[in-house]
């Protein structure tokens, strides 16, 4: 048992360190790509903490959803608009940083106070282990059915909204301003390059 508990402690310390340092890196690093990659590390260490809490299903879901989908999409967006240009100088940058730092510190102190004053039940409830997968399913389809379905409707709305914003050509007028949409800007007609060039050549031949 001692070996198991020592391993657990070492894993906990390592995961917490990567979590805290990684999150600081996400916020503080100037390079946005590094921040995005560090975010993946943060998500992975959160999944590791779930594993330590014997919640393997949640850990795998965390990896699948946050690392595999959310983080990859963030990276995708960053790399598709990968312009290596210096950001424009913002007036009063130092003041802004100090202010946001103060706000974050205040929030941190608040959470710390809650953490220290709450009488935590130690040790916590006994973990269910592998049975938790079945229980999560039962809860999702009984007492948590409404929030579950509401979340799916919310996601559907977000998806339709994204499609509408991305494909404005389905509307004759602009959704926001109400003016007639400039269809020419939305989708340029394909210029048949090969046909044009061959047509030009025949013209040349005719001239000759």
């Amino acid at each position: 048992m001692t070996i198991a508990s020592v391993t657990q402690l070492v894993c906990f310390i390592a995961l917490s360190l990567t979590l805290v340092l990684g999150s600081l890196g996400v916020v503080l690093l100037p390079n946005i790509v590094y921040s995005a990659f560090l975010l993946a590390g943060v998500f992975l260490s959160v999944a590791g903490l779930y594993l330590l809490l014997n919640a393997s299903f949640i850990a795998a879901a965390q990896v699948l959803v946050y690392v595999g989908a959310v983080n990859v999409l963030i990276l995708f967006a960053i790399m598709l608009v990968n312009k290596k240009e210096a950001m424009a100088e913002i007036p009063g940058l130092l003041l802004r940083r100090v202010l946001s730092g103060v706000v974050c510190l205040g929030l941190f102190l608040l959470i710390l106070r809650v953490d220290l004053t709450t009488p935590w039940a130690v040790p916590g409830p006994t973990p269910l282990g592998d049975d938790s997968t079945v229980l999560i399913g039962i809860h999702l389809f009984s007492d948590y059915l409404l929030p579950f379905e509401l979340a799916s409707v919310l996601l559907l709305m977000a998806m339709i909204g994204a499609i509408v914003l991305a494909r404005r050509d389905v509307f004759s007028s602009d959704v926001i301003t109400g003016e007639a949409a400039d269809q020419g800007l939305i989708e340029k007609e394909r210029t048949p390059l090969l046909l044009e060039s061959t047509a030009g050549e025949t013209n040349l031949l005719e001239k000759v």
């Binding site: 990659f37 990859v72 592998d130």
Partner: peptide, 22 residues
């Protein structure tokens, strides 16, 4: 014989694209 079995494989295989993007 972890209880989440194949789900673990699906979750782990979703990490790979990050390495490829990197």
């Amino acid at each position: 014989d972890v209880g989440i079995g194949v789900f673990l494989w699906i979750a782990l295989s979703s990490i790979q694209p990050i390495g490829l993007l990197m």
